[in-house]
Amino acid sequence: MSVVPAQQSGGGGGSSGLYDVLELVLDRGLVIDAFVRVSLVGIEILKIDVRVVVASVDTYLRFAEACNRLDLESGPNKSPGLPEIVGEVTESGARGKSKGALSGAAETISDAFSQARGEGEKESQTQSRPRARKAPARRKEEQE
């Protein structure tokens, strides 16, 4: 979506960017063997392999339901890259569903991702679909 890169000005501050850099702060960076590192118990959750989650019966059922709900008239007969499709997706709250697909145990972190995405989404909603329902995104933010 049309989000300007976060933290353009020096990289400080925003906590919404934290979850996206978490992996870097915790997992990259210089390690010096003469120094001790703090224990990271509980953080390994980031490493869960997405493929395990995708190939589950739950996912199949969910995809099947999602396909049933898709408006076929606007699907195969139109070029899939058309912007209206993005609008549609935004409006029907795909955010919550894709979270369902791709998250397993990493629920908290995914929520944070969703929140960050929701922010960007709101921007594009205001631009392209002023009447779009915003309630789902907002509810999510309040939970945070």
């Binding site: 992996e23 898709l70 699907g75 899939p80 499709i85 993005v86 697909a101 791709l102 991702f113």
Partner: peptide, 28 residues
């Protein structure tokens, strides 16, 4: 460093899958 993370917009991807795959479309 710039870190880039990509995710799918699920319904848009499902649209693509349906559009590209007649078998999926028929079954759905």
């Amino acid at each position: 460093e710039y870190n880039v993370k990509a995710t799918h917009v699920e319904e848009a991807v499902l649209h693509l899958v349906m559009a590209e795959n007649a078998e999926v479309r028929a079954l759905a």
